Amino acid sequence: MILNEKKEKQQKKIHILFFGMPPGNNLIDGYSKWFSPIIKNLKKNDRLNVYYINYNKILNEKFEILRFILIPYLIYKLHKYKDEIDIVHVLRQNAWYYNIFYALKIKKNITPLKIITVHDIYTAKGKVNFKIIKNIAHADAIFCPSNYTANDIRTILKINKPVYVTYNPLDPSFYCMGTDDKLKMRKNILKERSSRKVLLSIASEMPRKNFEKLLEVLFLFNTSMKEKILLIKVGQFTKLRYKYINIAKKFGIENDILWINYANEKDLLYLYNISDIFITLSDVEGFCMPLIEAMACGLPIIGSKSSAIPEIVGNAGILVNNNDNKEIIEAINTLLYNIDKRNEVIENGFNRIRAFHEQEISRIYFESYLTALEKGLNVK
Protein backbone atom coordinates (compact mmCIF):
# COMPACT_ATOMS: atom_id res chain seq x y z
CA MET A 1 0.00 0.00 0.00
CA ILE A 2 2.79 2.41 0.96
CA LEU A 3 4.73 1.50 -2.20
CA ASN A 4 1.67 2.17 -4.35
CA GLU A 5 1.17 5.57 -2.68
CA LYS A 6 4.82 6.47 -3.33
CA LYS A 7 4.57 5.38 -6.95
CA GLU A 8 1.38 7.40 -7.43
CA LYS A 9 3.02 10.46 -5.88
CA GLN A 10 6.09 10.08 -8.09
CA GLN A 11 4.00 9.78 -11.25
CA LYS A 12 1.49 12.54 -10.55
CA LYS A 13 1.12 15.28 -13.11
CA ILE A 14 3.24 18.38 -12.59
CA HIS A 15 1.49 21.63 -13.48
CA ILE A 16 3.80 24.42 -14.71
CA LEU A 17 2.77 27.99 -15.46
CA PHE A 18 5.20 30.00 -17.61
CA PHE A 19 5.23 33.78 -17.63
CA GLY A 20 7.44 35.99 -19.76
CA MET A 21 7.03 34.89 -23.38
CA PRO A 22 4.38 34.63 -26.08
CA PRO A 23 3.49 31.03 -26.98
CA GLY A 24 3.60 29.44 -30.40
CA ASN A 25 5.50 31.03 -33.26
CA ASN A 26 5.12 34.64 -32.15
CA LEU A 27 8.87 35.13 -31.75
CA ILE A 28 9.15 38.80 -30.95
CA ASP A 29 12.54 38.70 -29.24
CA GLY A 30 15.50 36.53 -28.24
CA TYR A 31 13.84 35.27 -25.06
CA SER A 32 10.98 33.82 -27.05
CA LYS A 33 13.37 32.40 -29.62
CA TRP A 34 15.26 30.23 -27.16
CA PHE A 35 12.30 29.05 -25.10
CA SER A 36 9.67 28.26 -27.72
CA PRO A 37 11.20 24.84 -28.58
CA ILE A 38 11.41 24.02 -24.86
CA ILE A 39 7.70 24.76 -24.44
CA LYS A 40 6.95 22.60 -27.48
CA ASN A 41 8.89 19.62 -26.10
CA LEU A 42 7.65 19.96 -22.52
CA LYS A 43 4.05 19.91 -23.77
CA LYS A 44 4.76 16.46 -25.25
CA ASN A 45 5.79 15.12 -21.83
CA ASP A 46 2.89 13.14 -20.36
CA ARG A 47 4.10 13.97 -16.85
CA LEU A 48 3.49 17.68 -17.38
CA ASN A 49 0.61 20.05 -17.86
CA VAL A 50 1.96 23.28 -19.35
CA TYR A 51 0.23 26.66 -19.13
CA TYR A 52 1.41 30.16 -19.95
CA ILE A 53 0.35 33.76 -19.61
CA ASN A 54 0.98 35.58 -22.86
CA TYR A 55 2.84 38.67 -21.70
CA ASN A 56 2.85 40.62 -24.96
CA LYS A 57 -0.91 41.07 -24.67
CA ILE A 58 -0.63 42.70 -21.26
CA LEU A 59 2.77 44.37 -21.16
CA ASN A 60 3.99 47.37 -23.05
CA GLU A 61 6.54 49.46 -21.22
CA LYS A 62 5.59 52.52 -23.27
CA PHE A 63 2.27 52.75 -21.42
CA GLU A 64 2.77 53.62 -17.77
CA ILE A 65 -0.84 52.82 -16.85
CA LEU A 66 -0.18 49.11 -17.34
CA ARG A 67 1.96 49.15 -14.21
CA PHE A 68 -1.24 49.71 -12.23
CA ILE A 69 -3.45 47.16 -13.97
CA LEU A 70 -0.90 44.34 -14.29
CA ILE A 71 -1.18 42.82 -10.80
CA PRO A 72 -5.03 42.74 -10.78
CA TYR A 73 -4.90 41.24 -14.27
CA LEU A 74 -2.51 38.51 -13.10
CA ILE A 75 -4.70 37.76 -10.07
CA TYR A 76 -7.61 37.36 -12.48
CA LYS A 77 -5.57 35.01 -14.72
CA LEU A 78 -4.36 32.97 -11.75
CA HIS A 79 -7.90 32.46 -10.45
CA LYS A 80 -8.75 29.80 -13.04
CA TYR A 81 -5.82 27.62 -11.93
CA LYS A 82 -7.05 27.52 -8.32
CA ASP A 83 -4.56 25.42 -6.34
CA GLU A 84 -3.31 23.06 -9.04
CA ILE A 85 -0.13 24.94 -10.09
CA ASP A 86 3.06 23.27 -8.84
CA ILE A 87 5.58 25.62 -10.48
CA VAL A 88 5.51 29.20 -11.72
CA HIS A 89 8.49 29.89 -13.96
CA VAL A 90 9.29 33.51 -14.88
CA LEU A 91 11.45 33.52 -18.00
CA ARG A 92 12.65 37.11 -18.07
CA GLN A 93 14.74 39.05 -15.56
CA ASN A 94 13.09 42.39 -16.30
CA ALA A 95 11.55 43.65 -13.04
CA TRP A 96 8.12 43.97 -14.67
CA TYR A 97 7.73 40.21 -14.86
CA TYR A 98 8.19 39.68 -11.14
CA ASN A 99 4.78 41.24 -10.59
CA ILE A 100 3.39 37.72 -10.86
CA PHE A 101 5.09 36.94 -7.53
CA TYR A 102 3.24 39.85 -5.91
CA ALA A 103 0.02 38.51 -7.41
CA LEU A 104 0.78 35.10 -5.88
CA LYS A 105 1.20 36.69 -2.45
CA ILE A 106 -2.29 38.14 -2.74
CA LYS A 107 -3.71 34.93 -4.22
CA LYS A 108 -2.81 32.89 -1.15
CA ASN A 109 -4.59 29.70 -2.22
CA ILE A 110 -1.88 29.17 -4.88
CA THR A 111 1.52 28.33 -3.36
CA PRO A 112 3.73 26.99 -6.14
CA LEU A 113 7.47 26.63 -6.39
CA LYS A 114 8.68 29.95 -7.82
CA ILE A 115 11.47 29.78 -10.40
CA ILE A 116 13.11 32.59 -12.36
CA THR A 117 15.53 32.48 -15.27
CA VAL A 118 18.51 34.82 -14.93
CA HIS A 119 20.42 35.18 -18.21
CA ASP A 120 23.27 37.24 -16.78
CA ILE A 121 23.78 39.75 -13.97
CA TYR A 122 25.24 42.66 -15.95
CA THR A 123 24.07 46.01 -17.27
CA ALA A 124 24.45 47.18 -20.87
CA LYS A 125 27.81 48.69 -19.90
CA GLY A 126 29.05 45.42 -18.40
CA LYS A 127 28.73 46.45 -14.75
CA VAL A 128 27.23 44.14 -12.13
CA ASN A 129 23.51 44.86 -11.75
CA PHE A 130 23.02 44.48 -8.01
CA LYS A 131 19.38 45.58 -8.35
CA ILE A 132 18.63 42.10 -9.64
CA ILE A 133 19.09 40.75 -6.09
CA LYS A 134 15.74 42.25 -5.10
CA ASN A 135 14.02 40.43 -7.96
CA ILE A 136 15.75 37.11 -7.31
CA ALA A 137 14.67 37.30 -3.66
CA HIS A 138 11.09 36.47 -4.70
CA ALA A 139 12.09 33.10 -6.16
CA ASP A 140 12.68 29.70 -4.56
CA ALA A 141 15.08 28.51 -7.28
CA ILE A 142 17.00 29.97 -10.22
CA PHE A 143 17.58 28.67 -13.74
CA CYS A 144 20.42 30.12 -15.82
CA PRO A 145 21.91 29.30 -19.25
CA SER A 146 25.55 28.73 -18.26
CA ASN A 147 27.82 27.69 -15.42
CA TYR A 148 29.39 31.13 -15.73
CA THR A 149 26.13 32.87 -14.80
CA ALA A 150 25.46 30.31 -12.06
CA ASN A 151 28.85 31.06 -10.53
CA ASP A 152 28.21 34.82 -10.74
CA ILE A 153 24.90 34.39 -8.91
CA ARG A 154 26.56 32.40 -6.12
CA THR A 155 29.83 34.29 -5.71
CA ILE A 156 29.13 37.90 -6.73
CA LEU A 157 25.48 38.32 -5.73
CA LYS A 158 25.89 35.89 -2.80
CA ILE A 159 22.48 34.36 -3.50
CA ASN A 160 21.86 31.29 -1.34
CA LYS A 161 19.22 29.54 -3.44
CA PRO A 162 19.29 26.40 -5.61
CA VAL A 163 20.72 27.24 -9.05
CA TYR A 164 20.20 24.99 -12.09
CA VAL A 165 22.16 25.30 -15.34
CA THR A 166 19.90 24.83 -18.37
CA TYR A 167 21.56 25.68 -21.68
CA ASN A 168 19.61 27.37 -24.45
CA PRO A 169 18.61 25.02 -27.30
CA LEU A 170 19.71 25.14 -30.93
CA ASP A 171 17.03 25.99 -33.47
CA PRO A 172 17.11 23.03 -35.93
CA SER A 173 16.47 25.38 -38.85
CA PHE A 174 20.18 26.29 -38.76
CA TYR A 175 22.36 23.95 -40.81
CA CYS A 176 25.40 23.91 -43.09
CA MET A 177 24.39 24.44 -46.72
CA GLY A 178 26.13 22.83 -49.69
CA THR A 179 29.05 24.59 -51.40
CA ASP A 180 27.08 25.48 -54.55
CA ASP A 181 24.22 26.95 -52.52
CA LYS A 182 26.68 28.97 -50.45
CA LEU A 183 28.31 30.45 -53.55
CA LYS A 184 24.93 31.31 -55.05
CA MET A 185 23.73 33.03 -51.86
CA ARG A 186 27.05 34.83 -51.52
CA LYS A 187 26.68 36.38 -54.98
CA ASN A 188 23.04 37.31 -54.34
CA ILE A 189 23.75 39.01 -51.00
CA LEU A 190 27.23 40.50 -51.45
CA LYS A 191 27.09 41.17 -55.21
CA GLU A 192 30.33 42.92 -56.28
CA ARG A 193 31.89 42.15 -52.88
CA SER A 194 31.23 38.40 -53.12
CA SER A 195 34.92 37.55 -53.59
CA ARG A 196 35.92 39.06 -50.24
CA LYS A 197 36.44 37.10 -47.03
CA VAL A 198 33.67 37.82 -44.53
CA LEU A 199 33.60 38.32 -40.77
CA LEU A 200 30.12 38.03 -39.25
CA SER A 201 29.06 39.76 -36.04
CA ILE A 202 25.53 39.34 -34.65
CA ALA A 203 24.98 41.40 -31.52
CA SER A 204 23.27 44.40 -30.02
CA GLU A 205 25.13 47.71 -29.95
CA MET A 206 25.41 47.98 -26.17
CA PRO A 207 28.92 48.89 -24.91
CA ARG A 208 29.61 45.50 -23.31
CA LYS A 209 29.61 43.92 -26.80
CA ASN A 210 32.96 45.68 -27.39
CA PHE A 211 32.15 46.62 -30.98
CA GLU A 212 34.64 49.50 -30.97
CA LYS A 213 37.44 46.96 -30.58
CA LEU A 214 36.13 44.99 -33.56
CA LEU A 215 36.22 48.15 -35.69
CA GLU A 216 39.80 48.76 -34.60
CA VAL A 217 40.77 45.18 -35.50
CA LEU A 218 39.10 45.51 -38.91
CA PHE A 219 41.07 48.69 -39.58
CA LEU A 220 44.40 47.14 -38.54
CA PHE A 221 43.78 43.98 -40.56
CA ASN A 222 42.72 45.77 -43.72
CA THR A 223 45.63 48.20 -43.62
CA SER A 224 48.28 45.56 -42.94
CA MET A 225 47.14 42.61 -45.08
CA LYS A 226 47.00 42.26 -48.86
CA GLU A 227 43.43 40.96 -48.77
CA LYS A 228 40.78 43.21 -47.22
CA ILE A 229 37.97 41.51 -45.34
CA LEU A 230 34.32 42.55 -45.15
CA LEU A 231 32.50 42.82 -41.82
CA ILE A 232 28.77 42.06 -41.75
CA LYS A 233 27.23 43.55 -38.62
CA VAL A 234 23.71 42.34 -37.75
CA GLY A 235 21.85 44.06 -34.94
CA GLN A 236 19.09 46.51 -34.13
CA PHE A 237 19.83 50.15 -34.89
CA THR A 238 20.44 52.31 -31.81
CA LYS A 239 21.84 55.79 -31.22
CA LEU A 240 25.25 54.21 -30.66
CA ARG A 241 25.32 53.39 -34.38
CA TYR A 242 26.19 57.01 -35.16
CA LYS A 243 29.24 56.71 -32.93
CA TYR A 244 30.35 53.47 -34.62
CA ILE A 245 29.82 54.93 -38.11
CA ASN A 246 31.98 57.94 -37.19
CA ILE A 247 34.72 55.62 -35.92
CA ALA A 248 34.55 53.63 -39.16
CA LYS A 249 34.84 56.85 -41.19
CA LYS A 250 37.79 57.96 -39.08
CA PHE A 251 39.53 54.64 -39.81
CA GLY A 252 38.52 54.79 -43.49
CA ILE A 253 36.73 51.42 -43.32
CA GLU A 254 33.13 52.58 -43.86
CA ASN A 255 33.03 50.67 -47.17
CA ASP A 256 34.29 47.51 -45.45
CA ILE A 257 31.15 47.15 -43.31
CA LEU A 258 27.69 45.92 -44.28
CA TRP A 259 25.13 47.01 -41.66
CA ILE A 260 22.00 44.86 -41.35
CA ASN A 261 19.45 46.13 -38.84
CA TYR A 262 17.17 43.10 -38.86
CA ALA A 263 17.45 39.52 -40.08
CA ASN A 264 14.81 36.80 -39.73
CA GLU A 265 15.68 33.13 -39.26
CA LYS A 266 16.04 32.49 -42.99
CA ASP A 267 18.21 35.58 -43.45
CA LEU A 268 20.44 34.50 -40.56
CA LEU A 269 20.82 31.03 -42.04
CA TYR A 270 22.10 32.56 -45.27
CA LEU A 271 24.40 35.02 -43.48
CA TYR A 272 26.03 32.27 -41.42
CA ASN A 273 26.55 30.19 -44.54
CA ILE A 274 28.08 32.93 -46.72
CA SER A 275 30.50 34.08 -44.00
CA ASP A 276 34.01 32.80 -43.29
CA ILE A 277 34.28 33.50 -39.55
CA PHE A 278 31.86 34.36 -36.77
CA ILE A 279 33.40 36.77 -34.27
CA THR A 280 32.36 38.08 -30.86
CA LEU A 281 34.65 40.19 -28.70
CA SER A 282 32.07 40.75 -25.95
CA ASP A 283 33.18 41.51 -22.42
CA VAL A 284 30.15 39.73 -20.97
CA GLU A 285 27.83 37.02 -22.32
CA GLY A 286 25.49 34.86 -20.27
CA PHE A 287 25.22 32.42 -23.20
CA CYS A 288 25.28 33.99 -26.74
CA MET A 289 22.87 32.18 -29.06
CA PRO A 290 24.75 33.02 -32.30
CA LEU A 291 27.65 30.84 -31.13
CA ILE A 292 25.69 27.59 -31.42
CA GLU A 293 23.92 28.75 -34.58
CA ALA A 294 27.31 29.45 -36.18
CA MET A 295 28.56 25.97 -35.21
CA ALA A 296 25.50 24.34 -36.78
CA CYS A 297 26.17 26.22 -40.03
CA GLY A 298 29.81 25.11 -40.19
CA LEU A 299 31.17 28.55 -39.34
CA PRO A 300 34.37 28.67 -37.24
CA ILE A 301 34.35 31.06 -34.28
CA ILE A 302 36.62 33.66 -32.76
CA GLY A 303 35.44 34.52 -29.27
CA SER A 304 36.55 36.31 -26.13
CA LYS A 305 38.15 34.32 -23.34
CA SER A 306 35.72 36.08 -21.01
CA SER A 307 32.38 35.17 -19.39
CA ALA A 308 30.36 32.22 -20.77
CA ILE A 309 31.92 32.26 -24.25
CA PRO A 310 34.66 29.64 -23.57
CA GLU A 311 32.07 27.37 -21.93
CA ILE A 312 29.75 27.50 -24.94
CA VAL A 313 32.39 27.45 -27.70
CA GLY A 314 34.54 24.66 -26.27
CA ASN A 315 36.97 23.60 -29.01
CA ALA A 316 34.77 24.90 -31.84
CA GLY A 317 36.75 28.10 -32.23
CA ILE A 318 39.76 30.14 -31.21
CA LEU A 319 39.51 32.05 -27.94
CA VAL A 320 41.32 35.37 -27.66
CA ASN A 321 42.06 38.17 -25.24
CA ASN A 322 39.47 40.63 -26.51
CA ASN A 323 41.79 43.60 -25.93
CA ASP A 324 44.81 42.13 -27.74
CA ASN A 325 44.74 43.29 -31.37
CA LYS A 326 47.67 41.11 -32.40
CA GLU A 327 46.11 37.96 -30.94
CA ILE A 328 42.76 38.64 -32.63
CA ILE A 329 44.36 39.31 -36.02
CA GLU A 330 46.43 36.11 -35.73
CA ALA A 331 43.23 34.17 -35.01
CA ILE A 332 41.56 35.66 -38.10
CA ASN A 333 44.54 34.72 -40.26
CA THR A 334 44.59 31.19 -38.86
CA LEU A 335 40.92 30.50 -39.55
CA LEU A 336 41.06 32.09 -43.01
CA TYR A 337 44.25 30.53 -44.34
CA ASN A 338 45.19 27.48 -42.23
CA ILE A 339 42.84 25.00 -43.90
CA ASP A 340 43.65 22.08 -41.57
CA LYS A 341 42.97 24.16 -38.46
CA ARG A 342 39.84 25.63 -40.01
CA ASN A 343 38.43 22.19 -40.88
CA GLU A 344 39.29 20.87 -37.41
CA VAL A 345 37.43 23.72 -35.72
CA ILE A 346 34.40 23.29 -37.99
CA GLU A 347 34.23 19.55 -37.26
CA ASN A 348 34.54 20.25 -33.54
CA GLY A 349 31.58 22.60 -33.87
CA PHE A 350 29.40 19.92 -35.45
CA ASN A 351 30.22 17.64 -32.52
CA ARG A 352 29.76 20.38 -29.94
CA ILE A 353 26.20 21.30 -30.95
CA ARG A 354 24.90 17.88 -29.91
CA ALA A 355 24.86 19.21 -26.35
CA PHE A 356 22.39 21.92 -27.42
CA HIS A 357 19.76 19.88 -29.27
CA GLU A 358 16.29 20.88 -28.09
CA GLN A 359 15.33 17.35 -27.01
CA GLU A 360 18.40 17.14 -24.77
CA ILE A 361 17.84 20.60 -23.29
CA SER A 362 14.15 19.82 -22.69
CA ARG A 363 15.16 16.65 -20.83
CA ILE A 364 17.49 18.70 -18.61
CA TYR A 365 14.68 21.18 -17.90
CA PHE A 366 12.31 18.39 -16.89
CA GLU A 367 14.90 16.77 -14.61
CA SER A 368 15.70 20.16 -13.06
CA TYR A 369 12.01 20.73 -12.30
CA LEU A 370 11.79 17.30 -10.66
CA THR A 371 14.92 17.94 -8.59
CA ALA A 372 13.65 21.33 -7.44
CA LEU A 373 10.32 19.84 -6.39
CA GLU A 374 11.96 16.90 -4.63
CA LYS A 375 13.93 19.32 -2.47
CA GLY A 376 10.62 20.16 -0.83
CA LEU A 377 10.42 23.83 -1.75
CA ASN A 378 6.75 24.76 -1.33
CA VAL A 379 5.63 21.32 -2.52
CA LYS A 380 2.00 20.67 -1.64
Rank of each mutant, 00 (worst) to 15 (best):
D120K: 08
K62L: 10
I260T: 03
S146F: 05
S362A: 14
N322F: 06
I121H: 00
I309D: 01
I87Q: 04
E205T: 11
T280W: 01
D140I: 05
N26C: 13
C288M: 07
N264Q: 06
F356N: 00
I65E: 12
R67A: 07
Q93F: 11
G20L: 05
L215W: 00
T371E: 14
I75Q: 00
N26K: 11
I100L: 02
L190M: 12
D180N: 15
K125T: 13
E5P: 14
F278Y: 13
T223Y: 10
I274K: 00
E227Q: 13
F251W: 02
L218T: 06
I189V: 11
L319A: 05
K40S: 14
S36P: 02
V320A: 08
V345H: 01
N109R: 11
Q236R: 13
L335Y: 01
N222Q: 05
G376V: 07
M1S: 15
E64N: 15
C297M: 05
V118Y: 06
T155F: 12
L215V: 05
N210F: 03
I85C: 05
M295C: 06
F19C: 02
L258C: 07
K33R: 13
Y76E: 06
L170I: 08
N343H: 10
G349K: 00
F101I: 03
S306R: 15
L220V: 09
K6E: 13
T155N: 13
S173F: 12
E61G: 14
E64R: 14
K114R: 08
K127D: 15
L59E: 06
N255K: 14
D46I: 07
L70P: 04
A316T: 03
K6A: 08
H119P: 06
K107F: 14
G303A: 12
P290I: 09
K127Q: 14
L199W: 01
K82A: 11
Q93N: 12
K305Q: 09
A103V: 00
I75H: 00
Y51I: 03
A95K: 10
L220M: 11
I2D: 15
S194C: 12
A331N: 02
E84F: 08
E5N: 15
L183N: 14
R92P: 07
